[in-house]
Computed example of a mutant assay.
Amino acid sequence: MGIRCFYIILLTIFLMGCSENEDKLDSVSFSSNECEQNWGICTVYDKGKYKNSGDSTVKIAILDSGINSNLAILKGKIKETYNAINKDSETLDELGHGTMIASIIAAEENPHNVIGVNPNAELYDVQVLNSKGGGQIEDVIDGIHWSIDRKVDIINLSFGFEKDNPKLKEAISLALSNDILVVASAGNTLGLYTHYPATYKGVYSISAIDKDLKRYKLAAKGKIDYVAPGVEIPVYNQKGETIIQSGTSLATAYATGVISILMSKEDSNVDLGLTSKSLGKKDDFGLGLLLIK
């Protein structure tokens, strides 16, 4: 247990009169310093207050460039791996993007303040992007089918394609019909269009906002369902370095984390009640900022 967690528990016991044997906190508040360093995590939680996930463990497939599972913040979180490019079980994140996405979703508490939205999530690492960030639709489709076979709860797609593809749409529809939620990046398209598969009906299309709750200047417009933090976000790369990044792909990871917290508290995703704060035009912000309350 980290030093911070230890003192939070002591303080909670003192203030709330908790019993000595109670070791699970319902909530803790992030400090102003933490919120200044990582505005995103404090924004998606109601008034910067962390609320533990529910009893159900949520299985999240991250289709991306792979994940460095050797990093301490991700130790033990990745349950299974699949390389859809090489058709084997070995993934290697040379790009760093997949590890960044995983750190937003599920990083353990660490001194660098890269705090995962849901550290209790189970991750399924599906490599569909190469070292340059490129990917074939056929590999993405294969990764989706692999994820369906593993009966994951959420598929996170922090990338997209400019053009529609019937086979991709069919794979997405199959995932949705298997009660798998699909969360996809709307794209950094300068507001010209929304990427696929985010455009598809039933897929959560996510755009990005900055700390002032303004639209990210490169973000897509059009079919937007929700927005999440995505500008100047602290993340871990594949080398274990803390870097600051921006983009709708990061916002997608935040959205997946928020949705996974809500799913862990519900009996099924059918009655999943998403809470959002309206921010403006639907083409820019959709239903608004996703929140955990």
Rank of each mutant, 00 (worst) to 15 (best):
N118T: 08
H145P: 03
E162Q: 15
A198E: 10
D153C: 10
I155E: 00
L190W: 11
I148Q: 09
V152K: 04
Q136T: 05
T194D: 05
I155N: 01
S185H: 03
E122N: 14
I144R: 01
P111E: 07
I172E: 03
Y124P: 13
I155D: 02
N156D: 02
S147W: 02
Q136E: 12
I104Q: 01
E138Q: 12
V117C: 02
I104G: 01
A175F: 03
I154R: 03
Y196M: 10
A186P: 09
N110H: 14
P119Y: 03
S131P: 07
F159Q: 06
I141D: 06
I101G: 00
A186N: 08
D149P: 04
F161I: 06
A102R: 06
I115M: 15
S177G: 10
I137C: 00
N188G: 05
N120I: 04
M100Y: 07
V117R: 00
A198M: 11
D142Q: 09
L174P: 02
I154C: 07
L181M: 02
A198P: 14
V117K: 01
G187F: 09
G116S: 10
I144C: 07
I155S: 02
N165H: 15
E138W: 01
S131I: 12
A175I: 03
H145C: 07
N120Q: 12
A107C: 11
L129W: 02
I180G: 03
N178I: 04
I180F: 05
M100T: 12
A184P: 01
V117T: 02
N130E: 14
I154S: 04
I154V: 13
Q127H: 14
D149L: 12
V182S: 07
A186Q: 08
V152R: 03
T189V: 10
I104P: 01
A175G: 05
L174I: 08
G143S: 05
F159E: 03
I101A: 00
N118V: 06
E109S: 14
L176V: 08
I155W: 02
P197M: 06
N113V: 08
G191I: 13
I137L: 02
I141Q: 06
L168P: 07
T199F: 12
H112F: 07
D142G: 05
L192W: 11
Q127I: 07
N113C: 11
T199S: 09
D142T: 14
